[in-house]
Deep mutational scan, measured.
Amino acid sequence: QEEEKEIKRLAKKFNASEEEARRAWKKAGGDPETAEKILKKKG
């Protein structure tokens, strides 16, 4: 599933848990760029 792959990639890229990545993904409405910004800010 595309979403799961994206979440795993985000978690790995930002050294975050999949739970954090999933939360960022949901907050971003499934937009990878926005999710990255959220995780970057958090990191």
Rank of each mutant, 00 (worst) to 15 (best):
Q1G: 13
Q1R: 11
Q1M: 14
Q1F: 14
E2K: 10
E2G: 08
E2L: 11
E2N: 12
E2M: 11
E3K: 08
E3N: 10
E3M: 11
E3Y: 12
E3W: 13
E4K: 04
E4N: 07
K5L: 13
K5T: 13
K5D: 12
K5H: 11
K5M: 14
K5S: 11
E6D: 05
E6S: 06
I7R: 01
I7G: 01
I7F: 03
I7V: 09
K8N: 09
K8Q: 14
K8I: 12
R9T: 05
R9P: 01
R9S: 06
R9M: 08
R9D: 07
L10I: 07
L10N: 00
L10T: 01
A11S: 07
A11C: 07
A11W: 03
K12P: 00
K12D: 12
K13C: 07
K13D: 06
F14M: 10
F14G: 02
F14P: 01
F14N: 03
F14A: 04
N15T: 03
N15Q: 09
A16V: 14
A16M: 09
A16D: 02
A16P: 00
A16Q: 08
S17L: 04
E18N: 07
E18K: 05
E19D: 07
E19V: 07
E20V: 08
E20C: 06
E20A: 08
A21N: 00
A21W: 02
A21Q: 00
A21G: 02
R22M: 06
R22L: 09
R22A: 07
R22C: 05
R23C: 08
R23N: 13
R23V: 11
R23Y: 14
A24E: 01
A24Y: 02
W25N: 02
W25I: 05
W25P: 00
W25H: 03
W25K: 02
W25T: 02
W25S: 02
K26E: 14
K26I: 09
K26L: 13
K26M: 12
K27V: 11
K27Y: 10
K27W: 11
A28D: 01
A28S: 09
A28R: 01
G29C: 03
G29D: 10
G29K: 12
G29N: 12
G29A: 11
G30N: 04
G30E: 03
D31K: 06
D31F: 04
D31Y: 03
D31I: 09
D31N: 10
D31V: 09
P32I: 15
E33W: 12
E33M: 11
E33Q: 12
E33D: 10
E33G: 09
T34P: 01
T34W: 11
T34G: 12
T34H: 09
A35M: 05
A35Q: 01
A35I: 07
A35Y: 02
A35V: 06
E36Q: 04
E36N: 04
E36W: 04
E36L: 04
K37G: 05
K37Y: 08
K37T: 05
K37P: 01
K37E: 14
I38G: 02
I38Y: 10
I38A: 03
I38W: 07
I38V: 04
L39N: 01
L39E: 00
L39M: 10
L39Y: 00
L39I: 05
K40S: 14
K40Y: 14
K40W: 14
K40I: 13
K40D: 14
K41T: 06
K41W: 10
K41E: 15
K41G: 15
K42M: 15
K42A: 15
K42T: 15
K42Q: 15
G43A: 11
G43E: 11
G43C: 09
